[in-house]
Each structure stands twice: as C-alpha cells, then as structure tokens.
Design a protein around this nucleic acid. Structure first.
Length: 649
DNA sequence: GTTGGGAGAATTTTT
DNA sequence: TTCTCCCAAC
C-alpha cells in the first residue's frame, strides 16, 4: 500500500488522519473533506500495520457506509476491505445474531420495520379499547417510546414530559406502550431501537462479550458523530473500552436529528467524557463559492453556539456572485418563478442533475410539483415513502417471512389478506385455529390451512402452494430471488393487476427486488439484510445514469451530505422555515431549525436562491401574510441580493 | 366481514 | 400530492 498522505490531504486533514492513538474529535465543517479524512485515517491505520478486522467503522446511513467502504477499500487495496464497517444497526444486528440466545432471543429473530411497528402499536391500542379521537395516535406513542429508549430515560417520565400541558391521562398511554413491548417479545421480534438497546444490554450484562469485542477493535471510528443519541454513544464507548482509540468525526452545527433523539451533547461534551481527547478542526471548504460561505458564516454567527466549537468556513474557490433572495407574491408565483429560473439555469449550461430544490416539509412543494408537471419538466421527488415500505414490496417479503419463520404472525396476516374475501378478522380466527403458528414446511399444516379457507380464497391459495412446495423440495438452497420470481409469476402479478392502478411499475419493482435477492445465499439472509436497508433508489442513484435528466426535489433533511451546483430553497418564511411546530416544541427548536438552514445553504456550490413568498393561501381561499424567515432577515445587505420578482404570466 | 369510495389532514425520518 | 380514516354497500 503506497498512499501519498501529504500529497492528497491538506494540512488540517493530514494532521487528523495521521494522528497518534487515543480519543480524538474531528470537527469538520460543511464541505471540508470529512469523509476524505475518515477514509484516509483508515488507510493510515492499515499502513501502520493494523489488521483491517481490528478496525470498527460506524456510520448512520447505508449510503454513507457504502461510500466509505468503497473509498477505503480502494485505498487499502485489501480483498476484504474493512470487514467491520457499517451502520450502527448493521453492526448491532451482527453481534445480536451471534449472541441472541444470551438475551433470550433466537438468532433468527425478525426485525420489525416502521410499518410493522405501527401495525403492532395499532393492535395494542385497539386491544385495550383505547381507540378514540382523543387518544394519541400510534405514531405519537411510538415516537415517545423511541425517545425514551434512545435517550435512555424512564418511559413514564418521557410520557409525562411529552404530554405536559395537554389533557392526556398517562396511564392508558403507558398501558398501550407496554402492551406493544410485550407483544414484540412474544413474537421474538426486534424493532430498530431494540437492535441498539439489546446490543448495549448484551455488552453490559455480559462483560466477557464486551471484552472480547473491545479487545478486537483496536480502533473505533465514527462518522457523523453529532447525530449519535445516548445509546449509540454508549455503544461506541463500550466497544472502544479496551484501547480507547476512538476517532469521531462530525459537525455539531449540522446536527438536525434532535427530534429523533440525537444529542449534541455527545459531541459538545466529548472532552468531558474523554479529558485526554485531542480536537482537530477542518475549516477549509472546497465546495462552495465564497459568497455562499459568507452567508453560512453569518447564520452560524447569529447563533449562540459555544465558542470553542465555532468553525468559520474558509473559501478556496474564486469569488463568483451573491446568493439571491427572491421576494414573491404567493405559492403559485413562487412555482412560476422557479420554473422560469430552471429555464435560465438550463440556458446557462447547467444540466438538470446539477439543480436541486429544497424545502422544509414535503407538502411545501405541492404547487411547484404541479407547475413542473404542467411545464413538462422532468423531476423526481425523494418522497417520504421508502422502497421497502411500499405495499407490494411488503407483500412479497411477507411470503419470505412466512417461509422462514412459523411464528411470524404479522407476515402471516399480510400474506393471507392478499386472498379474496380474507380480511383482518378472518386471519385472526384462522391464526388461532392453526394454533398461533404456521409451519409452511409441514404438509399437514398446509393442508390444515387450505381446509380452513373458504372456497374463493382456497382457489387463490392453490396458486401459491406450488411456490412453497418448490421451495422446500429444493432443500432451502434456492435463493430468495428465485422464490420471489416464482411468487410473482404464479400469483402476485395477477393480484397486482387487480389491486393497484399502476401494476406495471409495481411488478417492475418486484423484478428488481428479485434480482437484488439473487446475491444472497438463503432467504434468512435476504430478510435480515433488507430489514436494515431503506431503499434501492439510493443505490440506483449512486450508480449514476437513471435520472440524470430530472431535477431533484428534496427535503433539507434528505439532502444532507450531498451537493449541487444550484440550490433553490422554497418557502423561507416564519412558520414554515423555521417550522412553527418545531419552534413550539420545548428545547432547542430554534437552534435546530437554524442548523437546518445552514445545511440547506451549504449544499450549494455556485448558485443559491432563497424564495420568500409574501402570502400563504389556504384551501378555503383564506390569505395569511407571512414574515420573511428570521434566517433571511438577519442577513446583511451585502451578503445576499434581494430581488422583488414581478408577476409573470 | 369485506371492500371501496370520499373526505380530510399532513413536519422533518439516517435504521 | 399521498395516506388514513370512516361509513355504506356488497
């Protein structure tokens, strides 16, 4: 391995990447080569003779994990790359599969995704007879539970806090949540939070296990450390407890996931926990023109962020031109203006993929979506709906789950509901009749099921049976992709044709899924891997092509870590950005919104346009005047050029 | 019991 | 826009 560290890194990056042992905090401002530094750190460690399997590299997203691994493997040029590299949930899953029995789980435990969790919580609420308009929604309950677990706070306290000032009786709320938790254990399943919670439990309750892994991981590296929550930071601490070679990288000013339990204190108080920690700052920005950085620096400057952590972005690019603040009349005017802008940028030579439109919440882009469609401008929206949570994908996965686990009640229900005349109630009865389990490998169980079905359903079920039989005949060696393909041909394609208004694209998705599954040896592996992935689109995006000809519309959250030459931000008005809901929430809402705006602005390489409509129209024709966002108001004149946009069309 | 239509509501969402 | 809820008709 011959990496030229001096030649390929600037002095800030070099100092961090080639530092000695001990705990280290790298504060990397936006666009300063954070990933690069982390990747070269890995390469440096390997060049110093550290075995790759003694390095633990933790990231948050699959996207980051993939990028990191690719770049590191390239530098290290080892066939195995970095074997212990992945998302927190991935690594936790790996440890739990090995040692689940110590915690009373089977190593083949199912992972519940958000959809499953929602279902389970709904059931819990219904079973306790709490379903009413006044009772908090299942999402709220799941949120409170998740916060309590991720922040490691007692549940009753968290419930009290969350409903403080509202007329909500905590007792039934707690009862529903406990019922949910109990049900999960009965199913032998873990939700996303369980993976982390149980992994930490494993390390805490079994010192010999902790020691084994802490001794293995001579170096622990963490990306996006500002987004860690309490439990994740404890996991990191436990896994680095033998060598204390902890290398964490992050930007406290890009922490935008507080509402999911991320705790900036992890990064801000790193020195408190690790008094010997060295701090390195990366402030040289390679991404943006100086005018954009000036704006970002003003936004940071107006905050009450701790001095020690302040970073001032230093530009390396040539001066270009100021960001624009566009004053507009209303949402429709904004939409027409953006369409016009897009044409101008196209004329200037930017390609569609060079441009992104960002907003605080999905529905802020409503008018624009319609305008783009009318103007026939191709665009794609990174919507809230994730690939693996779409109905058709979950349907197909349900079959695999039924094949691999006889007690997966959720999957059984989902699969059987595909049959005509079978709904939730019938499935419940059926499940109990079958003894609360369905072992698909057992011909007697299959016969019992067919027997119990009414004629119409039985006829459709008959189409699925051969797929199941073929799977077991093959001795389980057939891969998940083939099972999916057979299921699609024998049953699902025709089901899709009657159930959806866009069956073609759904069938296409399933074909793609089938191909994806071809990589895995068995069905269990497919399921375990897929549960921790959120979409295939991200992979398709990364491989380029595809949607190069469309303009991307995205929330600011989803744009984190990415960059575009042209960035247009919609609805920069009080109440929308910053969002009112966020401001109303106790604790740091304002500060987090500010950081979010900072993230939005620093995505821009060349051009940044901030749209400020004057009024909002409601559905019933009402008109509200809105004030420009505080983040716009506080910008001095020389930082951004304000333009009053006349009426178009 | 199931299914389909229509009304109404909608922060953000790495796993 | 899309998703969820609720009621009425099979």
């Amino acid at each position: 391995m011959d990496v030229n560290f001096e030649g390929e890194l600037n002095s800030e990056q070099l100092a961090a990447a080639t530092a000695g042992d001990g705990p280290m905090l790298i504060l990397a401002a936006a666009g300063t080569g954070k990933t690069r530094t982390l990747v070269y750190r890995v390469a440096y460690l390997v060049s110093q003779g550290i075995e790759p399997d003694r390095i633990l590299l933790l990231t948050f997203t699959n996207r980051a994990a993939k990028e990191m691994l690719e770049r590191a493997s390239l530098l290290v040029r080892s066939a195995t790359g970095i074997p212990w590299s992945g998302t927190f949930h991935h690594i936790a899953n790996r440890l739990l599969r090995r040692h689940a029995s110590l915690l009373g789980y089977q190593s083949g435990f199912t992972i519940l995704d958000q959809d499953d969790s929602r279902k389970l919580m709904s059931d819990a609420i219904k079973e306790l007879g709490l379903k009413s308009k006044e009772f908090p929604k299942r999402e709220v309950l799941l949120h409170v539970l998740s916060q309590a677990r991720n922040r490691q706070r007692p549940l009753d306290e968290m419930v009290e806090d969350h409903f403080d000032g509202f007329e909500v009786d905590p007792a039934p709320v707690l009862a529903a949540i406990k019922r949910y938790e109990k049900r999960k254990v009965e199913l032998g399943a873990m939700d996303f939070d369980d993976l982390l919670v149980n992994c930490l439990r494993l390390l805490d309750e079994h010192p010999e296990i902790r020691q084994r892994y802490a001794r293995q991981f001579q170096h622990v590296l963490v990306d996006e450390y500002q987004d860690t929550n309490t439990i994740q930071s404890q996991l990191v601490d436990a896994l680095s407890s033998e060598f204390h070679n902890l290398f964490v990288v992050g930007d406290d000013f890009q922490s935008i996931y507080g509402w999911r339990g991320a705790d900036t204190r992890n990064i801000l108080e790193f020195r408190k926990r690790y008094p010997s920690a060295k701090i390195y700052k990366l402030e040289t920005n390679y991404r943006s023109v100086p005018e954009v950085l000036n704006l970002a620096n003003v936004t940071v400057g107006c905050s009450d962020h701790p001095e020690e952590y302040r970073k001032t972005l230093r530009a390396t690019r040539e001066p270009y031109r100021c960001p624009t603040v566009a004053r507009l009349r209303d949402g429709d005017h904004q939409a027409r203006y953006v369409v016009e802008l897009l044409r101008n940028f196209r004329r200037d030579g930017y390609r569609p993929r060079d441009i992104v439109i960002l907003y605080r919440a999905h529905f802020h882009a409503m008018e624009l979506q319609m305008a783009l469609t009318r103007a026939r401008i191709p665009h794609n929206i990174t919507s809230g709906m994730r690939f693996f949570e779409q109905a058709h994908v979950k349907d197909v996965l349900a079959l695999l789950r039924v094949l691999s686990c006889a007690t997966d009640a959720l999957a059984f229900e989902r699969l059987l509901c595909l049959l005509p005349g079978i709904g939730e109630v019938s499935v419940r009865k059926l499940w109990i009749k079958l003894g609360e389990r369905f072992d698909a490998s057992d011909p007697a169980a299959r016969a019992a099921l067919a027997e119990a079905l009414r004629p119409a359903a039985r006829a459709r079920w008959a189409a699925i049976v051969p797929v199941v039989e073929a799977y077991y005949r093959s001795g389980l060696s057939v891969n998940g992709g083939e099972v999916v393909q057979r299921f699609l041909d024998a049953f699902y394609a025709s089901h899709a044709a009657t159930a959806f208004d866009n069956p073609e694209s759904r069938v296409d998705d399933i074909r793609e899924l089938s191909l994806h599954f071809g990589k895995f040896e068995n069905v269990e592996q497919c399921l375990s891997d897929i549960a921790l992935l959120t979409n295939l689109d991200a992979e398709a995006d990364a491989s380029g092509a595809g949607d190069a000809e469309s303009i991307r519309l995205s929330t600011v959250h989803q744009a984190k870590g990415l960059e575009w030459p042209v960035v247009i931000v919609l609805w920069m008005v009080e109440g929308m950005f910053p969002s009112q809901r966020s401001l109303d929430e106790s604790g740091g809402g304002d500060a987090e919104e500010r950081r979010l705006f900072y993230v939005a602005a620093t995505r821009a390489k060349d051009e940044l346009v901030l749209c400020v409509p004057e009024v909002r129209r409601s559905r019933d024709g009402g008109v509200f005047y809105c004030n420009p966002s505080r983040f716009i108001d506080e910008l001095p004149n020389e930082i951004a050029q304000t333009r009053r946009i006349g009426f178009i069309g």
